Simulated assay, not measured.
Amino acid sequence: MKRLTFILFAFFLSAEVSFATGQYPELIIYEGDTLKLLSVPLEGYLGEYDEREDKYPFLKLTCSTALWRSYQALWKLENDELFLVDVFLCADREKSILRNLFELDSPIKAKWFSGKLFVQHGKMIKYHHSGFAQYFEEETVVEIQEGNLMDRQHFVNGYRP
């Protein structure tokens, strides 16, 4: 019985670990540089997974365990406004799906988004193999309200050598 309990425990532990995959970040053009964005502002526009799969069947494609959302978006912050520049299926820059999601030309002001953007600068100093658990030398937290910049704070993250 102890052996069976151990085997079941090991199985569930390995299953838990297998779902803990670090995710591809979004990209953002910020102050002239293309940086990693550990936020997903398009999610609110796309809606819940069930309705999104009905409305956008091409997003059912599972590209990788590192890209559960099936896309990677490119954003830009310009003149205190957040814009969606492009959306790539499976993070492949040759596979733009922007026109499949919007009937507008790029850039598209992200009026639907209110929340915080986590813009990463410098080298990664810590990584945990789960979601966006990545830590960089510096981070700018940008607060957006209906596509407009409301506030920004810059942080320098320390680490022990």
Rank of each mutant, 00 (worst) to 15 (best):
D105H: 02
G122F: 05
E26Q: 01
P107L: 04
I125Y: 05
F113K: 13
R99C: 06
L37I: 06
L149Q: 06
D105S: 09
W112Y: 08
E138H: 10
I97S: 09
G131F: 12
Y159G: 09
H128R: 15
K76G: 09
Y49L: 15
T140G: 08
S114F: 06
E78R: 10
P25E: 00
G147S: 03
G158N: 12
L4E: 07
C63E: 08
E143T: 15
A66R: 04
A15E: 07
I144P: 09
G158Q: 04
V40N: 10
L104E: 14
R152F: 12
C63P: 08
F58S: 07
P41C: 13
D86A: 08
L4P: 01
E103Y: 04
E16F: 11
L89A: 00
E137H: 01
E16V: 05
M150S: 10
P161K: 15
R69L: 06
V85S: 11
F136R: 10
F11N: 08
E139V: 15
G147Y: 07
I7Y: 01
Y135I: 11
L67H: 01
V87R: 00
D80S: 11
K55C: 02
E51S: 14
V17L: 15
V85R: 05
F88A: 07
E137L: 11
E51R: 05
E137Y: 06
F19Q: 13
H154I: 14
T140M: 08
E103K: 07
E94I: 03
L77Y: 02
T65K: 15
V85E: 04
R160D: 10
E103C: 04
Y30S: 02
Q134G: 01
D105R: 12
K76T: 03
E137Q: 09
R3G: 11
Y127S: 05
I29M: 14
Y49F: 14
S106M: 03
W68G: 10
H129M: 04
V141K: 05
A133I: 12
G115A: 12
Q134K: 14
F6G: 05
T21V: 09
Q153W: 11
S18N: 11
F102R: 01
V142Y: 03
V85F: 11
Y71H: 01
G22P: 00
E31Q: 10
N100I: 02
F11D: 04
T21A: 14
G22N: 07
V119T: 08
R99K: 12
D86L: 08
F88K: 09
G122L: 10
I144C: 00
P107S: 03
G32K: 07
D33M: 04
M1N: 00
K123N: 00
E143V: 15
L82V: 11
G122K: 10
G115R: 12
T5V: 15
K126H: 08
K2H: 03
L74W: 12
F136C: 03
C90N: 00
P57R: 13
L98Q: 11
